[in-house]
Simulated assay, not measured.
Amino acid sequence: MPIFLVVVGYLLGTFPSAILIARANGIDISSVGSGNPGASNVTRALGWRKGAWVYALDACKGALAAGLALGFDGRPLAYAAGAAAVLGHMFPITRGLRGGKGVATGSGVLFVIQPIIAPFAVILWWTVSRLTGKAAVGSLVAVGLVPAGLALLDRPAWEYAAMGALCALILAKHWPNVVRLVRREEPALSSVGQPADPTSTG
Results as ranks from 00 to 15, higher is better:
residue 1 M to F: 14
residue 132 T to A: 10
residue 167 C to F: 01
residue 131 L to W: 14
residue 10 Y to F: 15
residue 26 G to Q: 05
residue 44 R to P: 01
residue 199 T to V: 10
residue 8 V to Y: 09
residue 125 W to A: 08
residue 132 T to F: 03
residue 145 L to A: 02
residue 15 F to E: 03
residue 12 L to Q: 07
residue 33 G to N: 04
residue 64 L to C: 13
residue 26 G to W: 06
residue 41 N to K: 04
residue 163 M to I: 08
residue 144 G to S: 07
residue 155 R to G: 02
residue 164 G to Y: 00
residue 64 L to Y: 02
residue 153 L to H: 08
residue 153 L to S: 11
residue 44 R to Y: 00
residue 50 K to G: 04
residue 27 I to H: 01
residue 36 N to E: 04
residue 107 S to E: 05
residue 57 L to S: 12
residue 7 V to P: 10
residue 152 L to I: 12
residue 72 F to R: 15
residue 32 V to K: 02
residue 188 A to E: 01
residue 29 I to L: 01
residue 40 S to T: 12
residue 152 L to K: 00
residue 14 T to D: 02
residue 57 L to C: 15
residue 101 K to L: 02
residue 85 A to G: 04
residue 150 L to A: 01
residue 12 L to T: 06
residue 158 W to N: 05
residue 29 I to D: 01
residue 138 G to P: 00
residue 8 V to Q: 14
residue 92 P to C: 09
residue 132 T to R: 04
residue 79 Y to P: 01
residue 88 G to N: 03
residue 65 A to W: 07
residue 158 W to F: 07
residue 184 R to W: 13
residue 116 I to T: 15
residue 23 R to H: 12
residue 14 T to E: 14
residue 141 V to E: 02
residue 138 G to D: 00
residue 1 M to W: 13
residue 185 E to K: 15
residue 5 L to Q: 06
residue 43 T to Q: 04
residue 25 N to G: 09
residue 34 S to F: 00
residue 115 P to E: 03
residue 179 V to Y: 11
residue 16 P to I: 03
residue 63 A to K: 11
residue 56 A to Y: 05
residue 124 L to N: 00
residue 149 G to C: 09
residue 26 G to R: 06
residue 179 V to R: 14
residue 38 G to Y: 00
residue 42 V to T: 14
residue 85 A to V: 07
residue 70 L to E: 01
residue 52 A to I: 15
residue 97 L to T: 13
residue 54 V to Y: 05
residue 96 G to L: 06
residue 194 Q to A: 12
residue 100 G to S: 05
residue 18 A to V: 09
residue 52 A to T: 15
residue 144 G to K: 04
residue 148 A to V: 14
residue 180 R to A: 00
residue 24 A to M: 07
residue 94 T to E: 10
residue 119 P to Q: 08
residue 16 P to H: 07
residue 119 P to E: 06
residue 13 G to H: 07
residue 182 V to S: 14
residue 43 T to E: 02
